[in-house]
Amino acid sequence: MSRCALFPMSMVLALAAACATPKPRVDLLSPSEAQTKLRAIQSRTFELPDRLTALRGVMAVLQDLGFVIERANEALGLVTGARFAEPNYFDVVAITVTVRPQDDGKFLVRVNAIYNNKPIDTPEVYQNFFAALERSLFVERG
């Protein structure tokens, strides 16, 4: 190795050591208290005949709200959608809805809404969504 290359190489190594990525925190994947509270406002139970009805209601309400349905899976009870946060076209609102049967025959609907990369944690947003979903399911049954 020539002496000319030695100095810049040692600088690069020093920089690399300084830029070493920090180790992830041990509790990175464990649920926090805020997460548990969020789960409560994101979930609601509905009394419905079957999962198909629930999923159809979810897809209808997403179409009503102007979301583009990206993925839907009947076997997993999963629907994903997204839309631009008009009139601002740089922000994206994405939503994931899962429908799972519970022991008492009712269905648990869990909604995960994200605004750009951050989860939405205002309860009113989820209340509005569930109100719209109830309307959609009621219309369906009638």
């Binding site: 009503d64 946060a85 740089f90 939405i120 009113e124 947003v125």
Partner: peptide, 19 residues
């Protein structure tokens, strides 16, 4: 300035009257 302020996500989960 309008671009700096992120709008709230609320209106996107409410049914508009024209829905």
């Amino acid at each position: 300035l309008a671009g700096c302020q992120s709008p709230s996500p609320q209106p996107f989960f409410q049914l508009a009257p024209e829905a």
